[in-house]
Amino acid sequence: MTEPVPQIPEVPAAPAGPYVYDYAASPQRQIVMPKTVPLPSLKTYQAEVVAAAAADEAKWVKMQADFETAKTKAEAEGKDAPKPPVRPVPRKDDNDMKTPWPQEAKDADLLLLQERLGGKVEETFEQAGELTCQVSKDAILEALQLCRADAGLNYEMLADQSATHYPAATGFAFSVVYHLTSISRRKRLRLRILVPEGFTPESACAVYPGANWMEREIYDMLGIRFANHPDMTRILCPEDWEGYPLRKDYPVVGWGQRDISFREDRGGRLDLIAQQKAGQLGINLKQPKAE
């Protein structure tokens, strides 16, 4: 597209009647950029817990201070003292839901990774029974090789490789996630790297050949190219598709490519091919019609 600003396609004219659906307001046509960075991390969680506790404490202190001032004011005016404040207790929910929070990494595999990779490991934690290890983006190939080759880790299979777009983050734009499975030891591990826009991480095909199509899909959907990949082309969208659909600034209905009318072109494609071939041979197919 050569337009400077692509437009979300026009909505069809709404029919008149008692029930009118506002197509323009449908959620598929909006682009809602997220304002938070939902990247699970032990450090941010601990910081949040500390901040929440501090805020709670500050609120209680303020409540007591307010009570003191109100009491002195009431005594000065001769009225009855106000009720003393009661510390608010968090409400107990009796439902079957217990949110899993990030916890310290105690598992042997995570400790082994920290020991071997040293400074390249940015963070490790456990959440919801899953082990997560975040490495620096240049060290991912080394981490994968370690996981595969090391006898103590022995993660034979790459179950899944996926990526997420975090537009509200500073310092990185995507997170690429590798889910490894150890069949012999019955364990799963998640490796994660944070990638800024334009960075090309090393392809995992050298270690796990199954990452071939997974990385092509990540490139197709999010635009992250991988270095040393045997075949870095689009896989799900057509080869000449523009835009990366799973980014947060791409609307669900797209930028209008799907609204091209294929029907007007009755036999047009074949005609075009025929004309091209005829042009190569020097024959003029466009003969004037007799009036």
Partner: peptide
């Protein structure tokens, strides 16, 4: 809450996995 899970089950065709990321309050 801010959370990500990968849960795999044995579908008839193989390992079917769901990778979900949650956003706080969404």
């Amino acid at each position: 809450e801010v959370n990500e899970v990968y849960h795999a089950t044995e579908a008839p065709k193989g390992e079917l996995g769901y990778y979900l990321v949650g956003e706080k309050g969404s």
